[in-house]
Design a protein around this nucleic acid. Structure first.
Lengths: 191, 191
DNA sequence: ACACTAATGGCACTCAGCGCCACAAAGATA
DNA sequence: TATCTTTGTGGCGCTGAGTGCCATTAGTGT
């Protein structure tokens, strides 16, 4: 059992660190996969076994965090109004311990500030939206593919991204407050 | 005055037609820029002068239509509730004459059904969202960069895309109805 | 005819990404 | 200790997007 075969030469986390070091220095576009490979002390070909694409590096292990998101929503009290449950779930999902804030901020600044990454992220967001759509569908007795669950998922995403942009623009605000503000702004607007 | 120098060898519209012919046959990913160039009867290098990237071809002249969008919103009665004005503006912007429906449908099916194009489209949508943000800011005496105008822009986009997906999934519906349904679904959800 | 102008398109290059495969480094087996 | 098996590594070579450079082409104006 356990470890047979040649041991790994690196890890996702190590590659990520090496990549972020270079991105911070030269910017995302000016860093090549060969550069990252060299910085991480690994072959270029190996890099592509750890990350499907250069665009995937900044997102790290995002997909794995979605299980946590699913669980957060599943634990929401049933008697909470649906929109409130979703909103709190989104807020909870985006809570990070204080010591993780700087790196989280750097990551989101990179993603939301680099056009190539903004574009690529849509594909990552799809799984995130689906988590919401499934929760909404479950509570309303609909299918996740129905119009309303998908609408809620994409609107929640729109709010989250808008809040993140605001948070990045102003270092004094906190993210949860931004999410609340975006949500209450939307509700007033639609009234 | 007028036309000096060598005359153009093609046009955006002609390239678009050639490209869509090939995309329909083989799918977006299986068509290379060299293929499109050959089909349009121009050099590959010339193609890149008409379209910045392969991903830009399906969007065609989208940026130019934004002036029309701006105008639609500007003409909305001032006494219309803001959310209603925005909603009607979005609906108007997405009205197409009956004879243009098939090609519009094909275009949107290609864009929304191809991951590479879904991703790239974010960059195009940004200008669209800004049109809305500017209108909202204008009516509320805010800056387009403020949280609420940006929120409204991104939520309107989320609704529009969701409605388009529904429209594409079901050939019997019409887009305006889908937009209405998405909007009223959201309003009920937030109540 | 000759100058001028503007688009064309060929060439060569960088870089992402991928298939292929020889090889390295560990544990398992005898 | 020697060999077998397993599994990750990384080099090689390719395709395709996108770009800078520049000679060429096909018009207009004098």
């Amino acid at each position: 059992m356990g470890s047979r075969g040649r041991p790994v030469a690196t890890s996702h986390a190590e590659i990520e660190r090496a990549a972020f070091r270079l991105f911070a220095e030269r910017g995302f576009d000016a860093v090549t996969m060969a550069d990252i490979a060299a910085e991480a002390g690994v072959g270029r070909r190996t890099l592509f076994r750890y990350f499907e694409s250069k665009n995937d590096i900044p997102w790290g292990q995002f997909d794995r965090t979605l299980d946590g998101f699913r669980e957060i929503l599943a634990r929401m009290p049933e008697d909470l109004p649906l929109h409130e449950a979703v909103h709190r779930g989104v807020r909870r999902f985006n809570e990070f311990p204080a010591e993780a804030q700087p790196s989280h901020r750097a990551r989101m600044r990179l993603i939301l500030g680099t056009p190539a990454l903004q574009a690529h992220s849509v594909l990552r967001y799809e799984a995130w939206r689906r988590v919401i759509a499934e929760y909404v569908a479950g509570r309303l007795g609909l299918e996740p593919g129905d119009l309303l669950p998908r609408t809620v998922g994409s609107v929640a995403l729109a709010l989250a991204i808008t809040a993140y942009e605001g948070w990045l623009a102003d270092p004094d605000t906190d993210l949860a407050a931004m999410l609340d503000e975006a949500m209450s702004g939307l509700r007033d607007y639609l009234r």
